[in-house]
Design a protein around this nucleic acid. Structure first.
Lengths: 117, 117
DNA sequence: GCCCATAGTGTCGAAAAGGATACCGTGATG
DNA sequence: CATCACGGTATCCTTTTCGACACTATGGGC
């Protein structure tokens, strides 16, 4: 499922830009990475922070992030089940990018929304 | 067309991250902004840099970027027609974000592709 | 007279994304 | 005995995305 996007990265100089975007687009991945930046969390903990994401979507996005090596998934053989998610080394290296996105958004989007209200 | 994405920005702290992503996702916008960072360009000039984008898609993405206030479109009443695109003030302010995306991609994605080849 | 380039637009249809809902096993709790 | 919480799956269906292709107007060159 998914991961078809940009199978061929055929652009020359801007390629890297799209390659990075391909990893963090997908409607929820950006926020998930942002939240996981605060530390390890379990499934429903993340879910509570994203009020409007469905279980199916959250599973999906987490699986893709894992497949891309950005997060780590640790399952504990317990009942009730416990699954913890955390940023991988690679995921942590994305921090500056996430921060840049957040800062720009705070300054140029959120501010505009304030005014509109 | 489009622009439905994230009509309701209901997340709390990561909201700004998604808000920014909503502006630059869309398969080609990232690269377009990257290229326009080099200066004003006309339609077919951009198109030549993006070998695999269709005319329809390019028009579409440019219109969305314009609607979001990131680029400026100047039409000259000439024949054959001439239309020039350039970054707006707001678009230029995105430069650090684009740069962050590109740098991460160069380091963490392109490098991996080199090895694979 | 015909074709070229420019900067598009319109329509079609396939594929992907994503939402709703129901279901799973287990152990604790009421 | 029934119910809840956990971390998911499975299935269905609607919406969105996006590529292919055809079409437009105009003026210049051959």
């Amino acid at each position: 499922m998914a991961r078809t996007r940009h199978a061929s990265l055929d652009c020359s100089p801007g390629c890297a830009v799209e390659a990075t975007l391909a990893l963090i687009d997908g409607k929820w991945k950006g926020v998930i990475l942002h939240h996981l930046g605060e530390g390890t969390m379990r499934f429903n903990e993340i879910r509570r922070r994203l009020p409007s994401v469905t279980q199916r979507m959250l599973t999906n996005q987490l699986r893709e992030l894992e497949a891309d090596g950005l997060i780590t998934r640790r399952v504990y053989a317990e009942v009730p089940p416990r699954v913890e998610y955390s940023l991988s080394e690679r995921g942590r290296s994305l921090a500056p990018v996430i921060r840049a996105l957040k800062e720009w958004g705070d300054e140029h989007v959120m501010a505009a929304l304030q005014k509109a209200a």
